[in-house]
């Protein structure tokens, strides 16, 4: 079936298998491979995107459900070579090791800071409960969230 959706501000169209997930369409049809495909069951958060402004796992959205709707992926955050403050903070804090979970975490953190510009550590932990990282042990990720909050607060 043909689906049409606005991705990162641009209307795109794809001819997809009706049972395909939004994640599959983003990666395999639209070439947006920032959202990662890992668990395919909503456990790991690596495929996190915004659907009409809500943070969701794109693996759990049927692509057809995104028809005529707006999707924002991790690719929307940097402006050319200029990184988003959350991305900068992850680099500076050393919150990236293998990097696989990073795009999903960046999206989840950006979403958190939109809703709560100065989150407590408990709030951060609860907000990131759906993003798994198997390398860092999370400490540096939480440092990065605090650093990003600072950067965005000062901006």
């Amino acid at each position: 079936m043909i689906i049409r959706l606005k991705v990162n501000g641009e209307w795109r169209q794809a001819d997809v298998w009706p049972g395909a997930s939004l994640l599959h369409v983003l990666r395999e049809h639209l070439g947006l491979v920032g959202s990662k495909n890992a668990c395919e069951q909503g456990e790991c958060g690596s495929c996190s995107v915004w659907l009409d402004g809500d943070l969701v796992c794109s693996c759990l959205v049927l692509a057809a459900q995104a028809h005529e709707r707006e999707v924002q992926t991790v690719e929307s955050l940097a402006e050319g070579p200029r990184l988003h403050p959350v991305q900068e903070a992850f680099l500076e804090a050393g919150a990236v090791q293998c990097g696989f979970c990073t795009p999903g975490l960046i999206v989840a953190v950006a979403d958190l800071l939109q809703h709560d510009p100065a989150p407590s550590e408990l709030t951060i932990r609860e907000a990131l409960a759906g993003n798994l990282c198997r390398c860092t042990g999370y400490a540096k990720i939480i440092d990065a969230v605090k650093l990003a909050a600072q950067k965005m607060g000062n901006a």
Partner: peptide, 9 residues
């Protein structure tokens, strides 16, 4: 229920 991503859907 789940995570923020799950609760949003």
């Amino acid at each position: 229920v789940g995570s923020p991503q799950i609760r949003n859907r």
